[in-house]
Design a protein around this nucleic acid. Structure first.
Length: 287
DNA sequence: CCCACGACCTGTGGGC
DNA sequence: TGCCCACAGGTCGTGG
């Protein structure tokens, strides 16, 4: 589930406790997630100091003083939670997400100051890796990744090049991480609705003004979603175990059969399957 | 290169 | 209540 806004929210929540922290204990409670953990995973991390916490697309990156970078992808159901923070920090404004099932606590990190961060992942579509920090951008994992949607490189001119002579729907291509990094099924549907572009429209046939609208809508949706702490459908929670609340602002995602909320639109939201994934859109607002 | 589709894994909600 | 199917935030590999 976690798309860019959720990953960014988790990163921000972990940042204060992990920046500059030394890991005094690391436990891998199984040898693999989606892929095997890298050789010597626990050993290479134990005693390492985390420099900063960064994000690229849907990946959390923790460069270490050892010269390696810990890479974490949350897959569909991955959660990173600071232990003992649920009671302490979510008692206020934010609703608490459902508690993670302890049987899916696969990796534990403990800092020198006694803070424990647990990685939970029911479906185990997430993964972790340790790679040399030098040349990280050229690592196969990142070399072909598209630009960050909130940075200037993601522009209408860029999209025009990326979409050129592509017959697939705009929806499918925006989901492609080599075109733009970080978008997933929720935010692509929401962004195309804001842009007034049909998800079924062949990407290569979109004229420049429509690409301008898509770029603006993608940025606006991501900014709004980050400000809302992401979207919690089922499993997602931030580092403090709190739910996001952008799901309450969905205009189309998960709203099949319900009225379009655009004023004065009276059409009903449709669901179609594209590239094996559900797409939600308004047939009247999106052309 | 482009595109469609199944695989990976577990849980949950709906229909009967 | 119970069973079975469809579906879920994401990639990745294969085959045409």
């Amino acid at each position: 589930m976690p798309e860019l806004p959720e990953v960014e929210t988790v990163r921000r929540g972990l940042e204060p406790v992990l920046t500059g922290a030394r890991l005094r204990r690391v436990e891998a409670r199984r040898p693999d997630l989606r892929f095997p953990l890298p050789d010597g995973f626990v050993q290479r991390l134990t005693g390492a100091r985390i420099e900063t916490l960064r994000r690229r697309g849907k990946y959390i990156l923790a460069p270490l003083h050892s010269g390696e970078t810990l890479i974490i992808h949350l897959g569909m159901t991955g959660r990173l939670e600071i232990e003992d923070s649920r009671r302490a920090r979510t008692a206020g404004v934010l609703a608490r997400a459902s508690a993670p099932n302890p049987k899916h606590a696969h990796v534990l990190f403990e800092t020198e100051t006694g803070v424990q961060v647990t990685y939970f992942d029911a479906r185990r579509f997430g993964f972790m890796d340790l790679v040399r920090s030098e040349g990280l951008a050229e690592h196969p994992r990142f070399a072909s990744m598209g630009p960050e949607p909130l940075e200037a490189e993601f522009s209408a001119a860029y999209l025009a090049r990326a979409f050129k002579s592509r017959g697939q729907g705009a929806k499918t291509l925006l989901l492609d991480q080599t075109i733009v990094a970080g978008l997933g099924n929720i935010y692509v549907s929401e962004a195309l609705h804001r842009a007034g572009v049909s998800p079924l429209r062949a990407a290569g046939t979109l004229a420049k003004p429509r690409l301008v609208a898509i770029v603006a809508a993608v940025r606006a949706v991501l900014r709004d979603a980050i400000a809302a702490g992401g979207s919690t459908l089922r499993d997602y929670a931030n580092a403090q175990g709190a739910a996001g609340y952008f799901q309450h602002a969905f205009q189309v995602y998960g709203r099949e059969g319900q009225p379009c909320l655009a004023n004065p639109c009276t059409a009903v939201i449709r669901r179609v399957v594209q590239a094996g994934r559900s797409t939600f859109y308004c047939p009247r607002c999106q052309k």
